[in-house]
Amino acid sequence: MDKRLEPIVKDVQEKFSATFDEFRDEVHLMVAAEQIVDVLTLLRDEYKFELLSSLTASDYWPQETPRFHVVYQLSSIEKNICLQVRVPVNGTSPKVPTVIGVYKVANWRERELLDMFGIEFDGHPDPRRILMPEGTEGHPLRKDFPLGYEEPQFTFNFEEIGLTKPSPKE
């Protein structure tokens, strides 16, 4: 682990009883959902992680506990280090507190997660879909959502596909 990260990880561990693991010189901190706002506030104010580089999630379906990991990727410009904070959440309609108060960039990123994974963010001021059209059913990036593959139309199956393929009126 990077020497500059050691005191930070230790501090977060003591204050929030977090666990961590390491992979390819990257540190992944595991934090409970209720604590995420406090953890990020601490990291931003005390340890100068000014930039929330990325906010995403990962689906572990069919596993239910935890079903998702919400991943916060932080960067510090002043110290030139980065840190990953992961929040495991259970069930099909999980709730995580919003971190807009800490990083404003979370606004759109959380809307994206709501749209793509159906993870709700408590206290989000504008919980609308962002990428898919309003009224879409399901959340596309979940593992139980089908890819939506359509059979391509070739000469040998031209008529067969043509029967079901929608066509516009002139």
Partner: peptide, 30 residues
């Protein structure tokens, strides 16, 4: 396991969050 790697694109930080699942396909790529 998962990694995050970023490069400087003409527009800024272009990062990839990549998570493997032990198989030949990515489990999650953001």
């Amino acid at each position: 396991n998962s990694i995050y790697s970023a490069v400087e694109s003409p527009r800024g930080e272009l990062g990839m969050y990549l998570e493997g699942d032990g198989g030949p396909k990515p489990h999650r790529i953001h």
